[in-house]
Design a protein around this nucleic acid. Sequence first.
DNA 1: TCCCATCCATACCGTCAGGGTATGGCGTGA
DNA 2: TCACGCCATACCCTGACGGTATGGATGGGA
Lengths: 338, 338
Amino acid sequence: MGGTDGLDGALDVRDLRYFRAVAEERNFTRAAERLGIAQPPLSRAVRQLERRLGARLLDRSTRQVTPTAAGLVLLEEAVRVLDAVSAAAHRTRRAARATPAVVVTAKPGVATDLLRRMTRAYAAQPDAGRVEILVSGYGEQGGMVRDGRADVALLGTGEDDHGLDLEPLTTEPRVAALPAGHALAARSVLSCRDLAGLPFPHCPVLPPHADDYWWGRDAREEAAAQPGPVVRDSSQLLEAVALGQAVALVPASLAERNRRDDIAYRPVRDAGPYTLAIAWPSGSRSPVIARFVRTAIEVASHHEPPSHAAGPPPRVVDPPPGVAGPPVRLAEASARQG
Amino acid sequence: MGGTDGLDGALDVRDLRYFRAVAEERNFTRAAERLGIAQPPLSRAVRQLERRLGARLLDRSTRQVTPTAAGLVLLEEAVRVLDAVSAAAHRTRRAARATPAVVVTAKPGVATDLLRRMTRAYAAQPDAGRVEILVSGYGEQGGMVRDGRADVALLGTGEDDHGLDLEPLTTEPRVAALPAGHALAARSVLSCRDLAGLPFPHCPVLPPHADDYWWGRDAREEAAAQPGPVVRDSSQLLEAVALGQAVALVPASLAERNRRDDIAYRPVRDAGPYTLAIAWPSGSRSPVIARFVRTAIEVASHHEPPSHAAGPPPRVVDPPPGVAGPPVRLAEASARQG
DNA sequence: TCCCATCCATACCGTCAGGGTATGGCGTGA
DNA sequence: TCACGCCATACCCTGACGGTATGGATGGGA
């Protein structure tokens, strides 16, 4: 479908993995370490890559390796390629299994009942395949779909939805979770201003596979510099709040399901709602995925939010998706930047 | 951003190119020829790939090589990967040039005036970069954007928009183009039924780079089996009509601009309109592309269709795109299949 | 100012994967 | 039955990739 394969200047997955490591680490030695090879071959590989592309990719000035403009472009493209390669392997292996299944991923503790209903409704359909549920840490869902470990994901407002198509499922208000003894807990209603400056839990923006995936040093340092603790799931988050290490904005349903003495939940007047969406690989034509998405939307539209006072009225399904659903992004997406 | 790179089972661009060739050609010998290597290494490579993935990809039954279910999945993924790799090389090289430009591709003879206005309007903006126009053959535009040779494309209803985000620009009716002496030319209005069964020009569904890109044998045979001639641009198309080899449905504006004695244009009552859209890589965040797309939409909304009687009213711009415009597909896309 | 630590580049070498040639086995069609 | 087409196997060779050793440059600390 694409055009000429040509030789693409003979770009290779290995080259892209290597370049990505260096561009992210901004340091050949650390990158080599991360890749599990020695530093000299890495230097050579990157240099060869630059020669093949006929472009300088890295400025190796004194004491600092920084990507050039072209290097930044290649870094972005490399990530896409590597995800696509990963996806190719995962999806092929999955398709080869005797009874292929739809793999849906979600972070633990959110929308478990909705998820249960979805899978049940799907499995109830005649000749529907199996459904596997793959739990993932905060912020991991997008990556799991992109690299093919999962077919669809449930993810919330503000999570990384790069390269995915989304359809919103449910919306509910968010409330503040405060340590029981916190000064703000004395008040019955808060506003965002009240929370400004307080330590928020830092959802690890990135996959925490320390072994085979790292962030560049600045990203790591940046993460370390954040005031709040790093949490991977809702129980860690609540624990952090209970221990007084942080405050957090959580979906109302999560608060409902986690009433505890050591945490005070308070409405926040001007906090945006939490929207849960279902996501699938952008442009997927898989009828199985389309069917699951349709089912999910159907179920969500009948789904009564677990019972909190002023939830929004049940969502009306907009035009049902075609094969993989009309790619509609959340409003958030278009507002992402000016 | 994706998850674990792991080793992906050590998938490689080379493996995917090889597998794609075999899966498309359905014949090892021809695939090897197409790849410019000998057949035995190809057999070995595919076998190794199957071992690495732990899945049978091809059924090599007697006299016939057919992809398995897993093989079909991998074929689709392979195309994505290869396009992404191509795109990485092209975009990086482009970004490395002293004065990076927006490359827009369109087939010749369609919307040239609109294209001219768009580029002029874009270039008129302060600190806007250069614009390069890359002409492409029928059906090639999508591939050119996908593999990074172009940044944006103008393409019409029904063209391959896989992996692209679209925004419609203009809509105009289509008319039938008939050889002047044709029996139907005697009538003043036609319907689709009248045209059924007549030889239509076969827009080469696929890139015609005979050297480095071929279709699988069935696709080629299928194409050869089509009654109508194969054409690559509008002048070839009109020539084919004039020579009596085919009839065609063409946008009204094309008819306007190509009045000839040997071709009769007739309205077709129930023919769908021709919608021209601008397309860019799905999920692109490039501000340059976003800007060009915004300009294009703006220009198109002010654009008076070249003057034909009952054109639709000037199109109203729906919510202007954010960074890269809200990915909205043409209605056609959601109707693509039930 | 001098020294040392850090970090990237170069030189050299061994290994193995990938490609070529020759050939065999098998099924099909004349 | 023969001949052809097609895929698999066997074997060899080349070259790319990775490792080790080492050099050169820069910047910080004493």
